[in-house]
Design a binder for these strands. Structure first.
Ligand code: FES
Ligand code: FES
Lengths: 131, 131
DNA sequence: CAATAAGATACAATAATAGTATCATTAAAG
DNA sequence: CTTTAATGATACTATTATTGTATCTTATTG
């Protein structure tokens, strides 16, 4: 059961690493060196986190990324929402609906319950919890 | 959140169709015609279901597939187990473990709880329920 | 103005998924 | 006993999704 994709995975790793010294500026290069993260990739990743308000960036010499939100306030749910837009599957789990009536489908409300639970659990874990 | 793969998907469609007249013999060809299922594919699918004890097959002219188990006894869980062997993810959801200690990881037992719930729900829905 | 770091976006490689083809075997019908 | 209609087994190809890379532009500092 795949809950996490590449981007979320890397993002969490990066943020957990950064959370060890939350005040410090971290450049994309630092992630390449410290974590074994693909070079051109850490760039994009931090850019997205910055755009989405998780980090703030400063350009130029000595620049880099820093937390905008506190690590304890950054939930896995937030990251999944950023990097896995289509995470919540509102449609039927089958490609072509199978049951006679989608409103009375015995599967549908169960699946929705599960999805809600997953989201709740992801909302209950923060970057700080993993550090 | 992808729970179902191609094979499970087709299998459920096929079985729900067959369950409308459970006594009748159904050939691979019938599925191609009735449901819009890829030709060479319905073959393999029914073969697997037969091998796994869901259906029984008879070769030769007038042959085909019939239920070995009652539709009400065939649970989605069974099909997922047949076609998605690696469905239950026992490892960490991240490629490289992030937390300091896997035993105390706040994520791990939550995820396991979710997976159990998913399986329970899949075990509670049968082919007959969808017919 | 030179050096450093982010912003933006397009590209290529790889892996997973989906679908196809083929040959062998079995059983019934005529 | 030959033809026909079906499954058994397995290998192959195409398509799509994921993953990772390259490059050019813009901003900041000293
Ligand atoms: S089978 Fe998907 S909504 Fe009923
Ligand atoms: S982060 Fe995966 S087990 Fe802790």
């Amino acid at each position: 059961m795949k809950l996490i994709n590449r981007d979320t995975d890397y993002a969490v790793r990066a943020l957990v690493y950064m959370a060890r010294s939350p005040q410090q500026v971290c450049s994309a290069k630092a992630l390449v060196d410290e974590l074994r993260m693909p070079r051109a990739f850490s760039r994009r990743l931090l850019q997205v986190l910055s755009r989405e308000g998780i980090l703030k960036s400063s350009k130029g010499k000595g620049g880099g990324f820093r937390f905008r939100k506190l690590p304890a306030k950054i939930k896995l749910k937030d990251l999944v929402e950023i990097f896995q837009r289509d995470f919540k599957e509102t449609r039927c789990i089958f490609k072509k609906k199978i049951c006679p009536d989608i409103r009375t489908c015995p599967l549908r409300h169960k699946i929705q319950g599960i999805e809600k639970k997953v989201v709740d659990e992801l909302a209950a874990v923060s970057i700080a919890d993993l550090s």
